[in-house]
Simulated assay, not measured.
Amino acid sequence: MTTATRHDTTPATRSADWRTRAACQNLDIDTIYSDERGDQAEVQAACLRCPVRTLCLADATRWEEGPYQPWGVAGGLTHLQRQALRVHALLGEHPDLKQAGMLVLPQTFGDLLWKLRDWSLAAVVTEFRGQGVTASAVTIRVAMWWLGCRAALVAQPWSGDGRLMSVQIHDDHQQLVQKLTAMGVSRTNIALHLGVSPEQVQAARQAWKRAAERAGQELAA
């Protein structure tokens, strides 16, 4: 793939000079914009060693300046991860991409982030706080995504938490889900933000509804 091809097939930005240094220059354009996991893993591996990864991601997340790119990998994140990052932006949460770039280095915290890949994001943040790292949750999340980790707001059941993911949503994230719903965020995008399936979000919602109905019946009795 040539530099000209890369320039023409990527959303326009104010400055395209960094593209000539992108590590994806020799990747096929169909691979870059693919939603197949194997293709995305190949592109993300290139992004991890890319010297302009942060510039690429900054360009890809200027949502207010143009249409969102709903496919492929950009700045080391898949389009689903970028959509979750957009929900963070709606909540006023913005990553420090330079700091995220430091966190992924093997000589800093890259190895630790990989070891914690199945933990909830809050648990990872707590671990980092204990080591004196004050990076924001969304900054740590971007670093974990760059390394290929889940970086979900809920933990895998085998990570030590033990609760089903739908139970974690029910117990820990009701206010967040209600806030995003009130903001008009779709169930699909809420699920992307949490790092779970839409069905798991719906299961938690139904449990909250049943609990509210029971509480209403008890008050009426």
Rank of each mutant, 00 (worst) to 15 (best):
A58C: 00
G72A: 09
P11R: 09
T5Q: 14
A122H: 10
M102E: 02
Y33S: 08
G76I: 01
H170S: 13
I29V: 13
L219G: 15
D8L: 13
L116H: 08
G92E: 01
K209D: 09
G92D: 07
A41K: 08
Q81T: 09
S166D: 02
S159V: 06
P198K: 03
D35L: 08
L85Q: 10
D30C: 06
Q81W: 04
A220K: 07
Q81G: 08
W18Y: 14
T3D: 11
E36Q: 14
S166G: 06
A143F: 04
P157S: 13
G130D: 04
A221F: 11
V133T: 01
S166K: 07
M183F: 09
W146I: 05
D96G: 08
H94G: 07
K115Q: 12
G216Y: 07
A58P: 00
L57P: 04
T126H: 15
A84C: 01
A207Y: 07
L121S: 10
R86C: 07
R117V: 05
G72L: 09
W119E: 14
G130F: 06
L105C: 03
A74T: 00
D28L: 10
E64F: 15
T2S: 15
L77C: 10
R205N: 05
G76M: 05
C47L: 02
H79R: 02
Q168T: 07
R49E: 13
I190S: 02
A135H: 01
Q202H: 11
V125G: 04
Q99E: 10
L147H: 07
Q131T: 03
R82P: 03
G66A: 07
T134Q: 10
R214K: 13
P67W: 10
I169R: 05
A191F: 02
E42I: 13
E213V: 08
D161M: 06
V104F: 04
D39K: 04
H170W: 10
A211T: 01
V133Y: 04
V142I: 05
T181Y: 09
A122L: 10
V196P: 03
T13E: 04
H79Y: 15
N189P: 02
V154E: 01
Y33F: 15
V138Q: 09
A16G: 00
P106V: 11
A215Y: 05
E42T: 15
R86M: 11
G132N: 05
L77V: 03
V73N: 04
T9G: 11
Q156V: 02
A155I: 00
Q156L: 06
Q83K: 15
A60I: 00
D35K: 09
E42Y: 08
V125N: 04
Q202S: 12
R187A: 13
W114H: 12
T2G: 14
G76H: 03
H173D: 00
R49C: 11
D59V: 03
L192P: 03
L77D: 02
R141G: 14
Q202W: 01
D17E: 12
R62L: 14
P70G: 11
R14L: 09
N189T: 07
Q168N: 08
C47K: 04
Q40R: 09
A45Q: 12
E64G: 14
S120Q: 05
L80I: 11
E36P: 00
H94W: 13
L113K: 06
A191V: 03
D8K: 12
L176Q: 12
F109C: 03
P51M: 11
L105R: 15
A16H: 09
Q40I: 02
